[in-house]
């Protein structure tokens, strides 16, 4: 099974131990709202104060494996290791083919962890169809309720947001949100962030796609809205571009030994970002991603240096 992302070698035991030592070191840079754990660092959801690990697990493409039992079992192993490494948030959508069903399969197989933060989306036109779709999604996951439901790509948000707010008021949902990707509809998202009582937004943000830094991320901080970041590696394209260049030696100052760590640390170190959701089919990659959230994170000056360096490569 190929993974559409990373060029990094698998973690070996010594590297895992090293990452563990880094996690336990006193060198972590203090960022607003950031707390340290023995495993991944967390950041608080502004609307509740609940802590979420900075790295979650996406399911776009990676978990759409259909009825392939071997691939489903492999996905379950990724989920098992994700939770064992301190992960919580798994994100999916009805748009992602069989991903919801595969997540449900994995959760059943590994015994639904109490730490699970289940995030899904509604992706259909019309309120009635949306309610039916969200219920179907819940059944596919095999969970009593979702923690977070988001309006996928703002599709039919006028119909779905009232439903989500009602579900939250009735205790059938904990958080509400809206999503976009690939830098689209940022203007509409900004308007909704200003006008609707949203708990979460989800958007694309990475070393190359930094438009969200201009308005949406500052607005999320100002309005107290949690931010989930999709496509932190541009579905692997970002890493393939960077792989043509050597990693700068100063990357070691933030415990980066490869471009994937470099790219992920850049994303999760933004103070507005609550959680990034890289998708992977490999246990080694999910462990490395979780380890990335445990080591030192770049401060503002280092983040600027990272962005400038990547820009200089283009």
């Amino acid at each position: 099974m190929t993974t559409p992302a990373k060029t990094t070698p698998p973690l070996n035991n010594s590297r895992r131990r090293l990452l563990g030592m880094i996690a336990a070191s006193p060198l972590l840079v203090a960022l607003p709202g950031l707390t340290r754990h023995s495993q991944p660092a967390t950041r608080a959801i502004p609307s509740s104060g609940e802590a979420l690990p900075l790295v979650g697990l996406g399911s776009w493409i990676s978990f759409n494996v259909g009825n392939d039992k071997a691939a489903r079992d492999a996905s379950a192993e990724v989920m098992r290791n994700f939770f064992q490494a301190g992960g919580r948030l798994i994100d999916s959508s009805p748009m992602y083919g069989s991903a919801q069903e595969v997540i449900g399969y994995g959760l059943t197989k590994i015994g639904r962890p109490a730490a699970l933060f289940a995030a899904d989306k509604v992706w259909v036109s019309g309120g009635d169809a949306g309610r039916a779709q969200m219920e179907e999604s819940r059944q596919l996951w095999g969970i009593p309720r979702f923690d977070l439901l988001q309006v996928h790509n703002l599709l039919s948000w006028e119909a779905h947001l009232p439903t989500l707010f009602t579900m939250k008021a009735n205790g059938r949902l904990r958080y509400t949100g809206i999503t976009t990707s690939h830098g689209r509809r940022h203007g509409d998202m900004e308007q909704l962030m200003k006008s609707q009582p949203l708990d979460f937004i989800q958007l694309t943000y990475n070393l190359y796609d930094r438009e969200a830094e201009q308005r949406l991320l500052p607005l999320a901080l100002e309005r107290g809205i949690a931010v989930i970041v999709n496509r932190p590696f541009q579905q692997g394209a970002l890493l393939r571009r960077l792989a043509r260049h050597p990693l700068p030696s100063w990357a070691a100052e933030i415990d980066c030994s490869n471009w994937a760590q470099f790219a992920l640390k850049f994303v999760i170190s933004h103070p507005a970002v609550t959680c990034a959701i890289p998708a992977t089919t490999r246990v080694a990659h999910v462990l490395e991603n979780m380890g990335t959230a445990s080591g030192r994170l770049p401060d503002q000056a280092m983040r600027a240096r990272m962005a400038a360096f990547v820009d200089s490569l283009s």
């Binding site: 099974m1 190929t2 993974t3 559409p4 493409i61 990676s62 759409n64 494996v65 259909g66 009825n67 392939d68 691939a71 748009m95 992602y96 083919g97 790509n153 703002l154 599709l155 690939h182 689209r184 509809r185 579905q235 089919t281």
Partner: peptide
């Protein structure tokens, strides 16, 4: 999907090549 015409074909791909070809194998 809004603004669907601004997506590239690769953005719209739902599965990995390995999943696609594995589909034929299982079939």
């Amino acid at each position: 999907m809004s603004e669907w015409w601004t997506y590239s074909l690769r953005d719209l791909l739902l599965f990995s090549p390995s999943t696609y070809y594995r589909l034929f194998e299982l079939y």
